[in-house]
Design a protein around this nucleic acid. Structure first.
Length: 731
DNA sequence: GAGCACTGC
């Protein structure tokens, strides 16, 4: 501990912290920033006036770092040092240093927007740019102005990103702390490989024959490639075995592996043996494998992206960023000097790779984030309560300045660099439309009472809305189950291991089938069956349902029930139905609640075939995913209208997880779609900011331009916003 | 009749 680099910088850091409200710390891997920054602040008295909170993007990190710090300070975990993650709060009144996931801190700021129990907030690993961290960055920017006298923010980031974060916080100081990594020699390919699978294979074999002891970590993009490479490696290594003096163990490592299999990667390594770990980017940050000396980096990663104009998700293989490439290389230098083989030329790294990864906030639907921001006690709501502050219109300007600066921060830098980065305006408009259709905001873009309640639920807005509607119509218990099942769905079904395939098909017949209404209903029925068995673990195993996943569903369901009981007025029925057979009606109310909640995700069947056309977005022809339990009726037809959980483009655009709904429920929603006025919904973001730029009398003229040339207007707003923000920044 | 990168409340 004493030789951690960060301790030599204690004076520098503390001087910067004392003289500034915000400080960026660039701390490379092994600098000790995660464990030491909080302790330094504790020693310097910053825990006397409040808690030092340290956010982490991942649960395991929050827990393990808290445990470590409590050991170093010689206190019991949960006393002076504690942690808070979903489903688990190990803090007490005595807690002075608190590690928490960034999601938990966001939830806390919902009930306490000033975060006044904290004297310091440290946003750790900010360069990872998780959606939650990005929103926290925006909130901190606002908070440091309001609590400048008794609040400090420290942000840790990677080298390439630190300057930008500093700019975001009005050029706050940057302190650089070196890491304790061993040097890693970087080797580039001369050309781009034709097949990075073959290229990885060749490189791995070369290392095995020519290089000394040490494990090899190979980054691939997905399970299929991992499986292929593992089997090829096994073949080739075996044929080499006589010529090599070392044995080889080849291990896959990815998120869908059972935890027992993942453990093999971390177990003790037999002597005179080399392990090849073929991994996804799970090994980039989430899991650390000891003993790795060689890294093979394909330069690619699989990323999920959202297109706000079509409402469609896709899973694409894209080039990594420089930050990611360096992070991967760093995995070779943890225990001793290592080597990193990049399967691409250095010119590609220099010229094509983005400096930093496109942040999640730019690749996701913003409906949840916008609703969350609107629900905070920021000035666009409950204006009467805050009379002592600025006038209402000024408040709205302020709100959108916070929001737009937050989104600016993440959008503008990348738009010209990367085709998949969508414009902030488009993404925000999509979010506003979605929120309007599910009654979370009114036609002026102001949050409604329903929306306010929705934001309290840790769910995507559509599911929150479904719960609220279900509560009105006596099917909350069922909706809670569906919401919980959907929160974990991908982890429920068994993996693709071949020997279970046959067995599963057989058992699958015995599982409920949704009674012809679709996948949501099937999920409900599965959970109710499990409930009937008194949550029997063996029952899950019999039906090949992931035990961990089902337990998670139970936890989520309990948490949602508690929140609903807290926020909803009147009596609630949150008990799981005890007589599920009797509830096998047509699920009328539940399906209607889903229709209301997913008003922005409806599809209409085509007249002559079973394809669907999406409603609400730019219409698209899509198919129900073959994995759906929804089957054509006796006439060979699927339901006329469905709600869908997800629209995803794989080999074709598919609706995944669908439920039949009635046309009578759909019609009023379509009326609403037709009446959408995006300018009003935007709450005059552009208009208000243009007021500050130009004369009031210019306004009608500008609005005419909107109708005629939207793009031009958009760029004008953008320009006005830039000038506005620049001027504000100088003050 | 297809396929699932990784997190998190």
């Amino acid at each position: 501990m004493a030789d951690l680099p960060i301790l030599q910088f204690e004076e520098t850091i503390m001087k910067a912290v004392e003289e500034n409200t915000v400080v960026v710390i660039i701390g490379e891997t092994g600098s000790g920033k995660s464990t030491q920054l909080s302790q330094i602040l504790h020693r310097r008295g910053y825990t006397k006036s409040g808690i030092v909170g340290v956010t982490q993007p991942r649960r395991v990190a929050a827990v393990s770092v808290a445990r470590r710090v409590s050991q170093e300070l010689g206190v019991r975990l949960g006393d002076e040092v504690g942690y808070a993650i979903r489903f688990e709060d190990r803090t007490s009144e005595r807690t002075r240093i608190k590690y928490l996931t960034d999601g938990v801190l966001l939830r806390e700021s919902l009930s306490n927007p000033e975060l006044d129990q904290y004297s310091v907030v440290i946003l750790d690993e900010a360069h990872e740019r998780s959606l939650n961290t990005d929103i926290l960055l925006g909130l901190m920017k606002r908070l440091v102005k309001r609590r400048a006298s008794n609040f400090k923010v420290l942000i840790t980031s990677a080298t390439l990103d630190g300057e930008k974060v500093s700019q975001f916080f009005s050029e706050c100081p940057v302190v650089r702390v070196p890491g304790k990594l061993f040097p890693v020699e970087i080797m580039y390919s001369h050309e781009r490989p034709i097949s990075y699978l073959e290229s990885s294979l060749a490189t791995a074999l070369e290392i095995h024959m020519k290089e000394g002891e040490g494990d090899v970590l190979i980054f691939m993009t997905g399970q299929d490639d991992i499986d292929k490479l593992v089997s090829k490696l096994e073949d080739r290594v075996r044929s080499l075995e006589e010529g090599s003096c070392m044995d080889a163990i080849i291990l896959p490592l990815h998120g869908s592996l059972q935890p027992e299999m993942q453990v093999r990667v971390f177990g003790p390594r037999p002597p005179n043996c080399r392990r090849f770990i073929v991994a996804t980017n799970i090994a980039e940050t989430s899991l650390t494998v000891d003993g790795v000396v060689y890294v093979i980096d394909s330069g690619y990663v699989k990323q999920r992206q959202y297109n706000p104009s079509t409402g469609m998700y896709s899973l694409d293989v894209v080039q990594i960023s420089k930050v990611q490439a360096n992070q991967r290389a760093g995995r070779a230098g943890r225990t001793r000097p290592g080597k990193c083989y990049r399967l691409y030329p250095s010119a590609v790294y220099e010229d094509e790779f983005l400096d930093v990864t496109i942040p999640e906030i730019q690749r996701s639907s913003l409906a949840g984030s916008v609703l969350y921001l609107k629900s905070l006690d920021l000035p666009d709501i409950d204006i009467l309560k805050f009379d002592f502050l600025d006038s209402p219109s000024r408040k709205i300007v302020f709100f959108f300045r916070c929001v737009s600066s937050l989104f600016r921060h993440t959008f503008i830098a990348y738009n010209r660099l990367h085709p998949i980065a969508f414009a902030a305006a488009e993404s925000l408009q999509d979010a506003l439309k979605q929120l309007y259709l599910i009654d979370a905001i009114d036609e002026n873009g102001l949050i409604t009472r329903i929306g306010k309640t929705m934001a309290e639920l840790p769910l995507e807005p559509s599911l929150s809305r479904t719960l609220m509607e279900a509560n009105e119509h006596g099917c909350l218990s069922q909706a809670l189950t569906v919401a919980a099942m959907l929160s974990a769905e991908t982890t429920l079904l068994p993996g693709r291991s071949k020997n279970t395939e046959k067995k599963r098909k057989h058992d699958y017949l015995d599982l409920p089938d949704g009674s012809g209404w679709g996948d949501h209903i099937q999920l409900l029925q599965i959970y109710e069956c499990w409930h009937q068995t008194n949550y029997d673990i063996d029952w899950c195993k019999d039906y090949q349902l992931q035990v961990r996943g089902m337990k998670f569903v139970k936890d989520v369901r309990r948490q949602l029930s508690q929140i609903m009981q807290k926020i909803a007025r009147g009596p609630l029925d949150v008990q799981t139905s005890r007589r599920w057979k009797e509830s096998q009606q047509d699920y009328h109310n539940l399906r209607r609640a889903l229709c209301v909640g997913y008003a922005n995700q409806l599809a209409e069947r085509m007249v002559y075939h079973n394809g669907y056309r999406t409603l609400g977005f730019k219409p698209q022809v899509v198919q129900v995913h073959p994995s759906s339990v929804l089957k054509p009726d006796d006439e060979g037809k699927l339901p006329d209208y469905v709600v869908y959980q997800e629209l995803i483009a794989t080999s074709r655009p598919y609706l995944r997880t669908v439920c039949a709904v009635n046309i009578a429920w759909v019609t009023p929603i379509l009326d609403k779609v037709n009446k959408i006025n995006i300018n009003k919904l935007s709450g005059g973001i552009g208009r208000i900011e243009e007021h500050t730029e130009e004369n009031m009398s210019d306004l009608p003229k500008t609005e005419n331009v909107v109708a005629a040339v939207p793009d031009d207007h958009e760029s004008k707003i953008q320009a006005a916003r830039e000038r506005f923000l620049a001027r504000k920044g100088k003050k």
